[in-house]
Design a binder for these strands. Structure first.
Length: 102
DNA sequence: TTGCTGATTGTTTCT
DNA sequence: AGAAACAATCAGCAA
């Protein structure tokens, strides 16, 4: 069973973004990001004139409503994006090394 | 070695 | 421009 880890991040906290790394190798996106990219149009189309709160909620419900197969394409994208992140990480590592080298 | 936490990602809409 | 619901993530650090 999924341990409900103490995910106690007080919202808007993420917007504070405290810089901790020199070049911060921002991670890749999430499957939801790709899913939202496609569904956002569909959801908004099915719910014309709905507020952001509703869209976001219905979006999440539909996200899980999909079968693993459906999430596959999104997860695949997430995996791909993650790769992209690897590049950032490389840059970040290279830079860090450079600094250390100096 | 293991596990946690924090930081981050993108969307929408609103003021 | 930033804020919040929505979900995933996953990389680095500590004991």
């Amino acid at each position: 069973m999924p341990k409900e880890k103490t995910t106690k991040r007080a919202a808007t906290k993420r917007t504070e973004k405290k810089k901790k790394d020199p070049n911060a190798p921002k991670r890749g996106l999430s499957a939801y990001m790709f899913f939202a990219n496609e569904q956002r149009e569909n959801v908004r189309e099915e719910n014309p004139g709905i507020s952001f709160g509703q869209v976001g909620k219905v979006l999440g419900e539909r996200w899980k409503a999909l079968n693993d197969k459906q999430r596959a394409p999104y997860e695949a994208k997430a995996a791909q994006d993650k790769k992209r992140y690897e590049d950032e990480k490389a840059s970040y590592n290279a830079d860090a090394e450079e600094e250390e080298s100096s």
